[in-house]
Design a protein around this nucleic acid. Structure first.
Lengths: 215, 215
DNA sequence: AGTAAAAAACAATCGTGTCTGTTTTTTTTA
DNA sequence: TAAAAAAAACAGACACGATTGTTTTTTACT
């Protein structure tokens, strides 16, 4: 049987005060999880093997397997960590924007920055792998859906002018989403062409201005 | 030393007349290559192992290794085959369009069909894998570049009205390219939403109409 | 008979999961 | 409070299965 999962272990250790052991445990877990993300970025999902992760983390594979029951558990924890990090970073970027005279430009730029962030390729890598790995899909999909949800809600809050026409908002978001992600993914196989991309970026901004409901 | 590559073998066999043996050889090679593509579509690039390909092709692994020196050779042949097939299918779709009163709608639809074709996910799968597999990248990149080139040239030929403003053409193509590919890739992790997609599709068409240089 | 195709067998490597043993920390108990 | 017991962190080694490339054997064709 599986006895208790690693997460449960942490929880029981955390109750009352945080002992040194629990601290160390959390610390190495974090190190391992970050190493896993780093490996996915460097070597791809298939290339992220347990010995490689352990090596990247600077711990023995035995220690790693003590904290996580199997490879999937490591990947799962990495996804969770990645999701939170991604969301936090995006929210922080949004929060840094001027609330009063918020321009479409700023929102667009924030999303662009998000999509060109190194961690985005990790998410994309996982998304592609999940197509043929149902187990992975089961872990990844909720995070993916949650992110889009959050993104939509944030946009709804931030751009009150659009609330009168949610269809337009949805269209605008789809346009931004697909286009920018398309550009980001193109970078994988084709060297970036700043000039062309900024032209596209500017055009997209024009489109949004035109789509914006008039008060 | 690698002695002669499988391709060379075929060539020597093909010179003079096409013997039945050479025919069979070409036939099984094709079967293997198609099986490889099928496997990439089904199990992903990492999951496409030599036993699986051979099994899918219905030949022994030994026979397969007789025709291809190693796994890379199979993949390489598959990419070449895929590229030609993709290009041919796209050209055929373009050729089927009405030459006289060609609408943007038709061109857009053709590209959309191309991007939702099952073989497109194979190409995308390979593109992602090539990020962390430089050997693969070396094979894939030329095909990728050639396809984009061909696409651009075709568009240039098909829409003479745009020739007066190549900047607009380039922008339009970037917009179409990134958006549609973005939608296609979204399908990997998120179930399609026909309504939203057609709305986006129609909007894209409007954008193109507006971008079109006036005569 | 001789050559190519196909199949099978082989050796080497690699990744995974499990198991055993050691050290350190925490908890219990005297 | 100090010693003993329990639990957790960690390291290394093992066995199993899978994949790859090579080599050997069998089959089919000309």
């Amino acid at each position: 049987m599986n006895s208790k999962t690693s997460t449960e272990k942490v929880k029981t250790a955390q109750r009352k005060e945080i002992g040194r052991q629990a601290q160390k445990s959390a610390s190495t877990r974090k190190i391992i999880v970050e190493a896993a993300l780093s490996c996915i970025a460097k070597y791809g999902y298939a290339g992220t093997t347990t010995p490689i992760i352990a090596n990247e983390a600077g711990v023995s594979r035995g220690a790693m397997m003590h904290h996580f029951n199997n490879r999937s558990a490591v990947i799962g924890a990495a996804i969770e960590y990645l999701h939170e990090k991604r969301l936090r970073a995006f929210k922080r970027a949004i929060a840094a924007l001027p609330k009063d005279k918020l321009q479409l430009h700023d929102g667009l730029k924030a999303y662009w920055k998000h999509v060109t962030h190194p961690l985005y390729v990790v998410f994309h890598e996982l998304a592609v792998a999940s197509r043929t790995d149902k187990g992975l899909a089961k872990i990844l999909q909720p995070a993916q859906a949650a992110f889009y949800d959050e993104w939509y809600n944030l946009s709804y809050d931030l751009f009150p002018q659009w609330r009168s026409n949610t269809d337009a908002l949805e269209l605008a978001m789809d346009l931004v989403n697909t286009t920018l992600e398309g550009v980001a993914i193109r970078h994988l196989s084709i060297p970036e062409d700043i000039e062309r991309e900024t032209r596209l970026f500017n055009y997209l901004e024009e489109c949004l201005s035109a789509l914006k409901p008039k008060l």
